[in-house]
Amino acid sequence: MNERVLMSRDGPKQRIFAQLAEIAAALGHPHRLEILELIAQGERCVEDLAAVTGLSLANASRHLQVLRRARLAEPRRDGKRMLYSLVSETDVIALLASLGRVGERNVAEIGRVMDAYFRARDAMEPVARTALLERLREGHTTLLDVRPADEFALGHLPGAVNIPLDRLDTILAGLPPDHAVIAYCRGPYCILSFEAVARLRSCGVEAYRLEDGYPEWRAAGLPVEG
């Protein structure tokens, strides 16, 4: 009996579960989830990640080491800089998307935040990727990337125009009157596209947001530029 219990504790299933638990633990911090969202846009150095997240360089490095041990992120040396990117990008993005769906379905506080912030700014159905492709083929659509310029340079949807949120007012006069605007940003919980759509609509522009962001588009195997 004891031998069977020992085999069960040290069996292949338990060893696999132990490694999966390490991945789950790596996901168990909001700063690390934010870092994963950022490096999903493209390779980022530690200094940039620290600046964007508001973390100290030491804290950002510690979080990256946890993600590295869990095989969620990997470094590449570029001169004196260490650049990080996702490991198995498509799988990690799918994992984060699944985590979000479970949270939205099962955690009441997430639902309250979605209602109070996101849906309050845009209660309309977002534009699906397939629908966006069709709209772009037909024309009469302006595709707006509202991420910072450095993230746009790392990669973006074909034909997108990069106008960060703080410069949005500068393009209003130049928008073709017969064009709808579709905005996208870093992902489903990035506030930038919600804010952009709300601001454009307040100025009388027909505006929508993409259902998710650049990483999900790329992970779906759709074309990108940059």
Rank of each mutant, 00 (worst) to 15 (best):
E3A: 15
E3C: 08
R4D: 13
R4N: 13
L6W: 03
S8Q: 14
S8G: 14
R9S: 08
R9V: 09
G11M: 11
E22M: 07
A24F: 07
A25I: 11
G28K: 10
L33A: 04
L33W: 01
L33H: 01
I35F: 05
E37M: 10
E37V: 07
E43Y: 11
E43S: 14
R44Q: 15
R44H: 13
D48K: 09
A51H: 13
V52D: 06
T53N: 06
G54M: 11
S56V: 04
A58T: 12
A58G: 07
A60Q: 02
S61C: 11
S61N: 15
R68P: 02
L72F: 05
A73F: 03
R76Q: 15
R77T: 12
D78Y: 07
D78M: 13
G79L: 10
R81C: 06
M82Y: 09
L83G: 05
L83W: 06
S88P: 02
E89L: 10
E89Y: 12
D91V: 09
V92T: 12
I93M: 03
A94D: 10
S98H: 11
G100I: 06
G100R: 15
G100H: 08
R105E: 12
N106P: 06
M114P: 00
D115Y: 10
D115M: 12
A120W: 08
R121K: 15
D122V: 02
D122W: 03
D122C: 02
A123Y: 09
P126Q: 00
P126E: 01
A128P: 03
A128M: 11
A128D: 10
A128N: 06
A131D: 12
A131N: 05
L132K: 00
L132V: 01
L133P: 01
E138V: 12
H140P: 02
H140K: 15
H140A: 15
L144M: 10
D145F: 09
R147L: 08
A149T: 11
L154G: 07
H156G: 00
V161L: 15
P164C: 06
T170Y: 07
I171Y: 04
A173F: 08
A173T: 14
L175R: 04
Y184K: 01
C185E: 06
I191M: 14
L192S: 11
L192T: 04
S193A: 09
F194A: 04
V197Q: 01
R199Q: 15
L200R: 00
R201K: 15
C203L: 08
C203N: 12
E206W: 04
Y208L: 08
Y208Q: 04
E211P: 04
G213Q: 00
E216H: 12
L222M: 12
V224H: 05
E225P: 04
